[in-house]
């Protein structure tokens, strides 16, 4: 078990105790608290993409920013053209990104590594959706512009994905241990983590389950990887330097996100708050996932 799994475990116990007391947590409260943690920890984990990329690749600043922002706008256009395919695309990118951040340095052939990242991530997301499909459907059907997303939550297709990708993930762990790609301790840690993820996604509502994973197991872990890398690269690099580095783009992203959501809430933008939230997260995930792929390789 690593420190991030332990933080996840603390989160699980806190939420279990909250449910023990309140039995149910109102959807609005779930959204408020989840947004707080996603903005506080989730956004900053992608706030130094430019720094990481410049350390890894020789590229002009102008070219980087044009490509980075260009990808954001290209994805926004895709959202405008097709909400359904954009969501599918977003889920695929996220799946790969989550898998890569979980096993960044596993020593297997690149093609198998990429397949494994992708399927590990799909197993994670399909598990989250499989256990919470009714809740997802009710949220989706609540807004006119998200109704189209209901097609994504098809139980029969989701079941196939859920069982096949989870079986693949478990079998991969056994293969890795037999091939000595991971040691016994890592093997038990990963199996324990999968069990913990299943238990929490099953027990907790969709938003809480996702936030807990995204904040504790993904964002904090990635930030730690970034910090370790920069500490190696820069003499006397301290945690305060890291926070200073994260702050500008984090604040900018949070302000911009808040502005868009306020515009949506006041019907100035023609997208509902949930759809706009998914759109914002997805368009910043695309370039971030590409940068992290370069970073981890």
């Amino acid at each position: 078990m690593n420190l991030f799994t332990f933080i996840y475990l603390i989160g699980v116990y806190i939420i279990l105790n909250l449910f023990q007391g309140f039995k149910q947590i109102d959807l609005n409260d779930q959204l408020i608290y989840s947004s707080f943690f996603i903005l506080l920890i989730g956004i900053p984990h992608g706030a130094i993409d430019h720094v990481l990329f410049f350390k890894k690749r020789k590229i002009s600043k102008l070219k980087f920013y044009v490509l980075y922002i260009g990808l954001i706008f290209a994805f926004l256009i895709l959202w405008h053209v097709s909400v359904f395919y954009s969501l599918i695309f977003f889920l695929f990118i996220s799946a790969f990104h989550f898998g890569e951040s979980q096993f960044p340095h596993i020593n297997i052939q690149p093609i198998f590594k990429n397949i494994f990242y992708f399927i590990w991530g799909i197993s994670l997301l399909s598990t989250l959706m499989f256990y919470n499909i009714e809740e997802l459907k009710s949220i989706t059907l609540f807004f006119d512009d998200t109704v189209v997303l209901e097609q994504v939550y098809d139980l029969s297709k989701l079941s196939i994905l859920f069982y096949s990708t989870n079986a693949f993930t478990f079998i991969s762990m056994f293969i890795f241990i037999f091939m000595k790609k991971i040691n016994l301790d890592r093997f038990f840690s990963e199996i324990f983590l999968l069990f913990l993820i299943h238990a929490t996604f099953y027990l907790f509502p969709f938003i809480i389950g996702f936030t807990l994973y995204f904040v504790a197991l993904h964002s904090l872990k990635v930030m730690n990887d970034e910090y370790i890398f920069l500490k190696k690269e820069t003499p006397n690099f301290k945690i305060f330097d890291f926070i200073k580095l994260l702050a500008p783009y984090s604040v900018l992203s949070i302000c911009f996100t808040a502005l868009l959501l306020v515009l949506s809430y006041n019907n100035i933008i023609g997208y509902s708050v949930p759809l706009l939230s998914i759109m914002i997260i997805s368009v910043i995930t695309l370039p971030h996932a590409i940068v992290m792929n370069v970073f981890y390789n």
Binding site: M1, L3, F6, L9, I10, Y13, N17, L18, Q20, G21, F22, K23
Partner: peptide
Amino acid sequence: STGHSVQWGVLSTIGYLYIAYTVWF
């Protein structure tokens, strides 16, 4: 009351997490 159960449950969990942290990290 659930308040009683939660209050003592949280306090008990703190002890458990402390032990888990000490032996793991």
